[in-house]
Design a protein around this nucleic acid. Structure first.
Length: 611
DNA sequence: GAGCACTGC
């Protein structure tokens, strides 16, 4: 019945992102009498912000607004408490029972252990497909080839045929859809997958699930400004979600490669919501731009508040790129930025590019960067594609932003031919996504655009051969992500309120001068800590452009920034006076989240080290 | 000399 209802409503459904945009121009959302927050259990950044806004809105529109929150797993009581005891309706699910088996110990090598379990199922169990959860592409590839090998070695005729299929996000679509065609007769399918199979994709025919108990997760550390991609333990909710995948068509079995004591005591109840794992610059800017009279970012009522540290980090970043002034008030530039559905740094770059007369190029860079991660093919080990891509950048060496621009312009010259992408080892999907984003951005920015927004590849280059305008715009937009080279070598340190030693990522196309020295100043798109802290997507900038940023850094005062109208109030005592208030909760230490993640990571590394 | 899970306005 619910499904029917949803279909009926489909015409009126807006995505969370769109509702947030609508809030900008119409904060009371008067045109709606019912708002449905769907899939709230996924706890995306947008969902969490909307939950906070809805709570606020209900107070203002108590008589004429209904809010319905649907969730597959979200703890109803917690949400009910958040919304001052609103009613909870339970709709019983229809999935079949899934029997769970635990291993007695944590395996030292979960690939090997999954492999043995999978073979065991194949030999002993009744027909039915097997879904195996792994953490990433590398593990999946390894698992697929080993599994195929072991199955080959089984005695002929001892069991049914087998088909092993990988499934992960960077797989080309034509390979992804293979999992949707049912198994041939007398054949068992093994689907080796990442998280995609947990919620996003449903694979029919699965009766057995093998769960390694880990997941790859991206997190942001506000005290260093760095992201890391870690293998961490899953949560109980995730474990149950994975198990549930075995019971969609008939009763199933789930093999958990961890003891039940670990499930009970070590796993977190739920996955740490995105709002506590990501940089909040964009969200804070959004909330500031709503212009709600009584809004104070540090006291905003979140279901799970982000740390104080993370909010302050966002304020500092926004200040450095002119989105808020030194007392934390949103600026005119900030208002414009909030209208663009982009990272604040990219929005700022676009606005500056518009002033400098290189908007068209900046639009391309912003669009391509939004999809950059999925751009590169990882299929080919050889360097052919990389070499070909480098030819496209005709050796400008100014950095990765310029290269991405040139790649897109070349694709444009090739009339957006998908074959061109494959020839240059680029993912068609990512390139198409860039193209869509670019179109959307051009439309939004049309009303303030001072120059052409359509792609004008040749002309742009001719009028500015060194991309100075574009790089200057990037320098303003990424004023919060600036690094200075060491005197004697090509290492860098970040410039800002916290300093980190970092290096240019080896995949960068940034070039040195005749002595091999890289530019003295660069801006970067992100810091990612893998084997070492790396700057990814780097652009060389000039010293004179950097001066205004350094000046702002001198003036930066977090007490003023976070204060708004109550700039002089010291926060710590204020929180103590209001125990149990959201403010208190908002002060939840980032270190709590960090230490949870860190502990989970260490446990994983310790086990990995043992093998 | 590294190697990124998931989405998607």
């Amino acid at each position: 019945m619910l499904f029917g209802l949803k279909t009926e409503l489909q015409k009126r459904l807006r995505s969370n992102g769109v509702l947030l945009r609508e809030s900008l121009s119409n904060p009371e959302l008067k045109q709606y009498s019912v708002i449905i927050l769907d899939e709230a259990h996924e706890r995306s950044l947008n969902t969490d912000i909307l939950l906070g806004l809805m709570k606020r809105l209900i107070k203002h529109r108590a008589s004429d607004l209904k809010v319905l929150i649907t969730s597959a797993t979200l703890d109803g009581l917690k949400v009910s408490n958040f919304f001052s005891g609103c009613p909870v309706l339970n709709i019983p699910g229809t999935i079949f029972p899934v029997e769970k088996f635990y291993s007695t110990d944590r395996p030292t090598n979960y690939i090997e252990s999954s492999l043995r379990t999978a073979i065991d199922i194949h030999v002993k169990e009744a027909p039915g497909d097997v879904l195996i959860f792994m953490t990433g592409k590398d593990d999946i590839d390894k698992m697929v080839s080993k599994l195929e090998e072991r199955i080959q070695n089984l005695e002929e005729g001892s069991c049914m045929d087998a088909l092993v299929l990988p499934l992960h996000g960077s797989l080309p679509p034509e390979q992804q859809v293979r999992v949707f065609s049912p198994a041939p007769p007398n054949c068992r399918r093994f689907i080796v997958a990442t998280n995609v199979a947990e919620t996003s994709l449903t694979v029919d025919g699965v009766v057995f699930v093998v769960d390694c108990g880990y997941v790859k997760q991206r997190q942001y550390n506000p005290s260093t400004g760095m992201y890391s991609l870690d293998v961490v333990e899953i949560s109980r909710v995730q474990a149950d979600q994975r198990a549930g995948r075995a019971g969609r068509t008939r009763p199933g079995k789930c093999y958990r490669l961890y003891p039940s004591s670990i499930y009970q005591k070590e796993f977190l109840e739920a996955t740490i919501p995105e709002i506590q794992r990501t940089s909040l610059a964009g969200s804070v800017l959004y909330l500031k731009s709503l212009n709600l009279p009584d809004i104070d970012i540090l006291k905003f009522d979140f279901l799970d508040p982000p740390s104080r540290e993370s909010l302050e980090d966002a304020l500092r970043q926004l200040y450095l790129i002119d989105a808020i002034d030194e007392s934390g008030q949103i600026t005119d530039v900030g208002r414009l930025m909030a209208e663009l559905p982009l990272d604040p740094s990219l929005s700022r770059t676009l606005i500056e590019a518009n002033e400098l007369g290189c908007l068209s190029q900046a639009l391309t860079v912003a669009a391509v960067l939004s999809a950059e991660i999925t751009l590169r093919q990882t299929r080919n080990k050889d360097m052919e594609g990389k070499r070909k891509r480098q030819e496209l950048s005709d050796g400008s060496g100014w950095g990765d932003h310029v290269q991405l621009l040139q790649i897109f312009e070349s694709w444009d010259q090739a009339d957006y031919d998908p074959r061109w992408c494959s020839e240059h080892d680029l993912q068609v999907r990512g390139m198409k996504f860039s193209k869509d984003v670019r179109n959307q951005l051009s439309q939004i920015i049309q009303k303030i655009a001072k120059g052409p927004t359509d792609l004008q590849a040749r002309r742009g280059r001719k009028s500015d051969p060194d991309y100075r305008k574009l790089r200057r715009a990037l320098c303003v937009g990424y004023g919060n992500q600036l690094a200075e080279r060491m005197i004697h070598h090509n290492g860098y340190h970040t410039v800002g309120y916290r300093t980190q030693l970092v290096q240019v990522h080896p995949s960068s196309v940034l070039e040195g001068d005749e002595y091999g020295k890289l530019p003295v100043y660069v801006v970067y798109h992100e810091l990612i800590n893998t084997t070492r802290p790396f700057m990814r997507n780097v652009c060389g900038v000039e010293q004179t452009w950097v001066k205004p940023i350094l000046k702002k850094l001198e003036k930066l005062n977090i007490n003023k920034l976070s204060g708004g109208s109550s700039a002089l109030i010291d926060y710590e005592p204020l929180e103590e006076k209001q125990p149990g208030s959201p403010t208190k909760a908002a002060a939840a230490k980032q270190s709590d989240v960090d230490s949870k993640i860190q502990a989970a990571r260490e446990r994983y590394l310790a086990r990995k080290g043992k093998k």
